[in-house]
C-alpha cells in the first residue's frame, strides 16, 4: 500500500476523482476495503444504538401493557383509589396506598440517610487523614456492593424484631423498618457522589476563606459545601431514585400489606406491589400490575431528568 493517506480518506469518487493512473487490481482492493470499513462502521453504529433501542423497548412495553388496565379502571380511580383488593370478589384497584408509601418511604430514607451521608462525605473529602479516608471509603464501597436481599435478611432478623420490642408494636415489619433499610442502602450513592462534588471545589475558594480568618471547619460548610451544592443535590436525587426503585429488601421488611402508609404499620410500595402479586396474577389484576410499573417508571424518568439537570449544572459550575 503506497497510496497517500489523503486519497483514501477523502470522499472523492475513486474512479473519476483522482487523476493519476492506478493499476486496476489495486484499485479494486481499495474499493473492497472501503466497503469493509463501511460495514464495520455499520456494525458499531448498530451497537451504539442498542442502548437507545433498549430504552425504547422498555418504554413501549410498559406503555402498551400498562395502559389497558388504567383505561378499564379509570385513571382517577386507579391513581387515587385508597383500596387495593385485587383478589376480592369485586376487585378494587386503587394504588394511592402504594404511591404514598413509596413517597413517604423515600422521603424518610432521604431524611435519615442524607444528613449522615452528607456529613460523612464532607469529612472524607475535606477533613479526614488519608488513612481514615482510605479505610472508610473502602467500607462505603462494601456497603454499595452488598446485595439487597442480604439487607433484607438482616433487616428481617435484626431490625423488625428490634422495632417490635422498642416501640411495643405487634409487628415490626413496617414502614419504619423499610425506611431504615433504604436509608442504609442509599448511603453509598450519597457519600460517593457528594465526595466527587466536594473534591471538585477549587482550592482557591477554600484558601480565600481561610485567609479571611475562617477556620477549616467553617470553610468546609460555608464555602466548599455551597460551591458543591449542585453535585450534592445530584447525590440526593440519585438517592431518591435508588430508594424508590428498591424492591427486594423492602419486600422483606415492610410486611407487604396494602395499607395507607403509617410508620408502624405494614405497608406495600410500588415496587413490592408489582413483585408480590406478579407470580400468581392473571387478567385485569396482572394488567393492573403493569400499570403500577408504568407509574413507577414515570416517577423514575422524572427523577432521572432532575438528576441530569443537577449533574449538568454541577459540571458547569
Amino acid at each position: 500500500m503506497c497510496l497517500p493517506m489523503k486519497k483514501r480518506q477523502s470522499k472523492i469518487d475513486p474512479v473519476t476523482g483522482g487523476s493519476d493512473i492506478r493499476p486496476p487490481v489495486l484499485w479494486d482492493s481499495l474499493m473492497k476495503k472501503q466497503a469493509f470499513e463501511n460495514f464495520i462502521y455499520g456494525v458499531f453504529l448498530l451497537l451504539g444504538l442498542i442502548t437507545v433501542g433498549c430504552v425504547l423497548l422498555i418504554t413501549v412495553y410498559l406503555i402498551i401493557s400498562g395502559i389497558p388496565a388504567i383505561r378499564e379502571i379509570g385513571l382517577f380511580k386507579f391513581l387515587f383509589g385508597k383500596t387495593w383488593a385485587s383478589t376480592a370478589k369485586t376487585p378494587q384497584f386503587g394504588i394511592l396506598p402504594f404511591i404514598l408509601t413509596s413517597i413517604y418511604g423515600t422521603a424518610g430514607a432521604i431524611a435519615l440517610g442524607v444528613p449522615i451521608g452528607f456529613l460523612t462525605a464532607v469529612y472524607l473529602a475535606k477533613a479526614a487523614p488519608p488513612k481514615v479516608k482510605a479505610v472508610v471509603s473502602a467500607a462505603v464501597s462494601v456497603l454499595a456492593g452488598i446485595p439487597s436481599v442480604v439487607y433484607g435478611l438482616v433487616g428481617m432478623l435484626v431490625l423488625v424484631p428490634g422495632i417490635r420490642s422498642i416501640f411495643h408494636v405487634p409487628d415490626g415489619a413496617s414502614l419504619l423498618a423499610a425506611i431504615v433499610v433504604l436509608a442504609v442502602m442509599i448511603l453509598p450513592s450519597i457519600v460517593n457522589v457528594s465526595i466527587t462534588a466536594l473534591e471538585a471545589v477549587p482550592q482557591e475558594y477554600e484558601d480565600a476563606s481561610l485567609a479571611l480568618g475562617a477556620t477549616p471547619t467553617e470553610t468546609y460548610f460555608r464555602v466548599s459545601v455551597p460551591a458543591a451544592r449542585s453535585g450534592i443535590a445530584a447525590a440526593v436525587v440519585l438517592g431518591v431514585g435508588r430508594a424508590i426503585g428498591e424492591a427486594m429488601a423492602v419486600m422483606m421488611v415492610s410486611g407487604n400489606v396494602a395499607n395507607m402508609p403509617s410508620l408502624f404499620q405494614s405497608v406495600r410500595f410500588l415496587t413490592t406491589a408489582v413483585a408480590s402479586e406478579m407470580s400468581y396474577s392473571s387478567g385485569l389484576q396482572r394488567q393492573a400490575l403493569f400499570s403500577i410499573a408504568l407509574v413507577l417508571y414515570l416517577f423514575i424518568l422524572l427523577i432521572n431528568a432532575a438528576l441530569n439537570f443537577f449533574l449538568k449544572r454541577s459540571k458547569e459550575a
Binding site: 477549587p202 482557591e204 475558594y205 484558601d207 480565600a208 476563606s209 481561610l210 485567609a211 479571611l212 480568618g213 475562617a214 460555608r222 464555602v223 455551597p226 460551591a227 459550575a317
Partner: peptide
C-alpha cells in the same frame, strides 16, 4: 491573625455566590 492580616491572591477567587455574600462572608 488572618483576620488582621488579609490576603489577596494571584488569581481572582471570588466565591461562587452573590457579590453581597462575598463581601459579607468575612
Amino acid at each position: 491573625l488572618r483576620k488582621d492580616i488579609g490576603m489577596v491572591f494571584q488569581k481572582p477567587n471570588p466565591f461562587p455566590m452573590s457579590v453581597y455574600d462575598n463581601i459579607a462572608y468575612g
